[in-house]
Design a protein around this nucleic acid. Structure first.
Lengths: 245, 245
DNA sequence: TGACATGGCATGTATATACATGTTTCACTC
DNA sequence: GAGTGAAACATGTATATACATGCCATGTCA
């Protein structure tokens, strides 16, 4: 008589389910110590390697905490933060079935960028950066103003891209492995320049997304996405507890 | 002469590094097929179980794609979406070293909620829901208006909480395992009610975060977080390619 | 009483072996 | 030539075994 389910799934999955069920039911409370691997081997009738794999995977999924020589414990509830997924605007529009068009306003190498830019790139001295300013239209109505500064040391030939068709982030990810991303989302009133390019009334609300990306310790890109508040919102649906196949 | 590094890390880690190095250098291009497990066993001089573990972990980390009976392939670049982490306001303020205070405006059971709420909960008929409205202050300045509708079937005793001290999301996550989260971020001008509660000028920009959570197929909560645009932005730093320990 | 050695027990890694399961290929048969 | 079946080969799972490593309690010796 085993405590494991009799489904068709592999044994280590059943062991994982068994552990999760005990946690879910509250039988094994938070920070409680689990039976040792050998205990589970005896009570469940499977080999230690199988138990070990189950516990190892549950640990890497954040459900358990293990300390060599001490034992296995129910992990404290996962960080009470939630993730939002930001996809690029072109796919987003296409997914909605809308027509996308992009207008390139600016495309240049800036030899002596403003100090704010130099500081954002964490340069110790002034270095040239590539700069692009693109307006994205959905069904010929402007929805996003995309401004990018790119580190030419990491992304060569950035200015040679065809910005009207290629998703910029896609190109960047192909060029250089981005290791870290910082986001800042804010709501600000539109300035005159933004109002003109986005064809919106001045001082109306804009949804602004700042994004800064790193490759290792080096800043790769600094971006600002400005959206017309009344025409755009940033949405996402996310499943926090994803079971890896 | 092995191709593996001579560091102190475990063997399966070295195998993982070996594979990642070959992908990173472009020697194994995207969608290219890797040598079979047995090939790697012969060329690297480790057991198949060790190779298998390395490849399995790299697969679950998204670097590889495996098909039983066919082979192992370099995974296409990960979804060009980026994740934003939203943490709760209380921790955020505390982390900044600010003083947090909360004021409860409303706390009630709504027997006959508005149709918009009924629709948001995907009820097939009118059912009562619990409702709370809380203002969060940072150093006695209001920064967030938090409005929640909670499904009493999933979260009993919601109204009995002490909302001024406990993080609401924290409580919800303890009560019911939330399986899915939907977010919508937008920028809208403040209405009269919001302007009053948040002590801000009417029509100034607000950063609004809508959040809807599910437990299984059932809607658990429907929330709206309204922030003063000039005082608050939603930030996060995220490492996309996280190596599990 | 304090310091230290040691044994017991927990998890962590590595291997050999076996069989299961899915895919492709290829030769054989009809 | 079409269909079929078996072999070859790929990954997937499960076990037994061995040893490594880390932590802790116990007991002994100074």
């Amino acid at each position: 008589m085993s405590a494991l389910s009799d489904s068709a799934s592999p044994l280590y999955e059943k062991v994982k389910d068994f552990v999760l069920a005990n946690i879910g039911s509250g039988k094994w409370a938070q920070n409680a110590r689990l039976p040792s691997e050998n205990d589970l081997v005896n009570s469940l009738g499977v080999s230690r390697m199988t138990v070990h794999r189950a516990l190892r995977e549950l640990t890497s999924e954040g459900h358990l905490r293990r300390v060599q020589g001490v034992g296995t414990f129910v992990a404290p509830p996962k960080a009470q933060s939630t993730l939002i997924e930001v996809s690029n605007i072109i796919n987003e529009i296409r997914d909605r079935g809308g027509k996308h068009r992009a207008g390139v306003i600016l495309l240049e190498r800036v030899e002596h960028p403003a100090t704010a830019i130099v500081r954002a790139f964490e340069f110790d001295q002034t270095k040239p950066v590539d700069h692009s300013l693109v307006v994205h239209f959905e069904n010929d109505i402007p929805v996003q103003l995309e401004e990018r500064y790119v580190n030419p040391a990491l992304v060569p030939h950035y200015l040679d891209q065809d910005f009207t068709s290629i998703a910029t982030l896609e190109y960047l990810q192909r060029c250089t492995p981005l290791t870290e991303v910082e986001h800042l989302i804010s709501a600000v009133p539109a300035g005159p320049e933004q109002a003109r390019l986005l064809q919106m009334p001045e001082r109306d609300s804009c949804l602004v997304l700042h994004r800064k990306t790193w490759t290792g310790a080096t800043v790769a890109t600094v971006n600002t996405f400005t959206h017309v508040g009344s025409r755009y919102s940033l949405g996402s649906r996310y499943r926090p507890t994803h079971k890896p196949a």
